[in-house]
Design a protein around this nucleic acid. Structure first.
Lengths: 342, 342
DNA sequence: CTGTTAGCGCTTTCAT
DNA sequence: ATGAAAGCGCTAACAG
């Protein structure tokens, strides 16, 4: 029982050496007790534990890391912590980390390749045992020396390039197929596609799947209904009026990511169209909207757990060839996608 | 330009010593170049940089930390990464960290005091320069030795106990006042209060403020309209039917936190009441609901920046007395709170 | 301007 | 079962 400051202020933290001195044992004995190594007599163990308590000793992880060469940290590099998909990932990784005595460093890229590089380089200097990331840049070659040195890299949402890494990807094509099939089944043919910049891997996969699915249904894609850009409030506003305020307006919208969907919903709220909407990616409160949001949901949790699984498998053999796992997605029907064509 | 594995697999990372050898200089010269210390001739600098590049050298932060006694790490311990409030906090801290060459460790408590303790103790072993947390437990005394040793602690949302720390708190009473004033102004008198467990600091402040505000308006609080519990889907369902399915049903609901609000919305979606709802805490997509969510919004961003400000001020003088800053909240009117009494 | 020496706090190795 | 010595990779404190 000690109140802050009572033991003196500006105190150095006690070291293992001091604990040893206090307990009247050798340094190594303290180390053994701290690390719960076998072969320490109960008497000494008790003495050491008492000294630890008296001194409020806590081991210095920096020293441990240096000596051991393992840091017990997992680096997570993602676009945004607020995105529900990445929040799930963060949660899952944190949970695993705590159960295995590791900690999680988190870095945000905001979809900027340079930031990705900066953050990753900052992180790898700390020698994380593993790096879980949603890559953006063209190549992650800059990580190669660390991968060679045994750091396990697992990517999520998109694959890495230039390094040996595992990847957990959503079944983008399957999800788009389901969405288009669903809309076509309701009688829609003028289905606008609102997606993200094609430089993004998932955006690329999804728009390709859109064209393929449309072709499969023998519907000619009206290029004026295909819009690929960063999802800003005003950009989506313009896009909406482009696809809806025209002679033959789109009767359905396929929004290809959750940021776009949020902006589409904002945009539609200011208009009076009756247009169907299916979103690739669910929103946190998609069930509370009216109509509810019909969405192709990625199982963030399954993807996160898969990533962790791959990571734990890779840890002991860091140089094994990269694996890619595709995780299925699921169309959730709630109303917005079941509005028939006008 | 090197492809992973080509330089050999399972390679050790080069050390400063090896760089020195390769560059034909002393260890310390490499250190100087790496740390951009002055007084190194351009020639040697060039040589060293070449050697660094050849060897793909990156400094080992563990060693640096050990030697320097500073880790360049900020620990963040919060309830849940997905909560928009904490997501904002995380974002702000990450941004600051990156601009100052630090990294962020993140730990989740899920509102469990034991987990809080475990996570914090795990973290402090890593000797973070600062700890930003939303405390839950009765006391954070277990951090005292580390505070004594110079770790800066700043809490957000709730104060710490048993240690000297700064705190950034929302103006809970002011927010509740605004909410009640607003509802009373619409003619409501039977205003149900749905809050969290009173063990939680903010929950306590808010329910006290609710009673005070009601008293100020000379309205007797009907205790059957006051419900304090953890926000689970079924619990809130029961609560809703308790306050709405009765002789004199509540005409307005004041939901005192965002988890409760989400569940209230889910519950109301399955019912046909016309009841006003004001939420303390906004939801991510509160503007997209219909009616829009009238909410007392905490400026997560302002609170986060305030916390960082306090932290940077505390870093150089870790033993200064704790300061508490109250951050104002703002009532955002969007429709759900403007439904008149039946 | 450059280099040498010591040692951060711990674990590893090897004695005893 | 216990301990002494060495050293992880780096920076601080001094020389030159």
């Amino acid at each position: 029982m000690s109140v802050s400051g009572v033991n003196g202020t500006g105190q150095r933290r006690p070291t293992m050496k001091e604990v040893a001195a206090r307990a009247g044992v050798a340094l190594k004995t303290v180390s053994r007790v701290v690390n719960e190594e076998p072969n320490v007599s109960p008497e000494l163990t008790a003495k050491v534990q008492a000294a630890i308590k008296d001194l409020n000793y806590t081991p210095n992880e920096s020293a441990r890391m240096l000596r051991r060469g393992k840091t017990g940290t997992i680096a997570v590099v993602i676009r945004d912590i607020g995105d529900p998909f990445f929040a799930s990932l963060g949660r899952a990784v944190e949970l695993w980390a705590r159960s295995s005595g590791s900690v999680v460093m988190i870095g945000l890229t905001d979809e900027d390749p340079e930031r990705e590089r900066d953050v990753c380089l900052e992180f790898v200097a700390r020698r994380p045992d593993a790096l879980i990331m949603a890559p953006i840049g063209e190549t992650q070659e800059y990580l190669a020396p660390h991968v060679d040195a045994g750091m396990a890299v697992v990517t999520i949402d998109r694959p890495a390039h230039g390094i040996e890494a595992d990847a957990v990807l959503a079944d983008n094509a399957g999800g788009i197929d389901q969405a288009i099939d669903h809309l076509v089944r309701q009688g829609h043919r003028r289905i606008a596609y609102l997606g993200d910049d094609e430089r993004i891997f998932t955006a690329r996969e999804r728009v390709v799947a859109y064209r393929a699915a449309m072709a499969r249904h023998r519907i000619d894609v009206d290029e004026d209904l295909v819009h690929l850009s960063e999802p800003t409030t005003e950009g989506i506003g313009i896009t909406l009026s482009a696809v809806l305020d025209r002679a033959e307006p789109a009767t359905a919208l396929l929004s290809a990511n959750n940021m776009t969907t949020a902006e589409v919903l904002r945009g539609l709220a200011g208009r009076r169209d009756r247009v169907a909407l299916v979103s690739f990616d669910d929103l946190a409160l998609g069930d509370l909207l009216s109509p509810g949001l019909t969405a192709v949901a990625q199982s963030a949790d399954v993807m996160a757990r898969t990533a962790i699984q791959l990571m734990t498998e890779r840890l002991p053999e860091p140089h094994r060839p990269g694996r890619t796992v595709r995780v299925p997605v699921k169309l959730t029907i709630r109303g917005s996608g079941e509005i028939p064509p006008a």
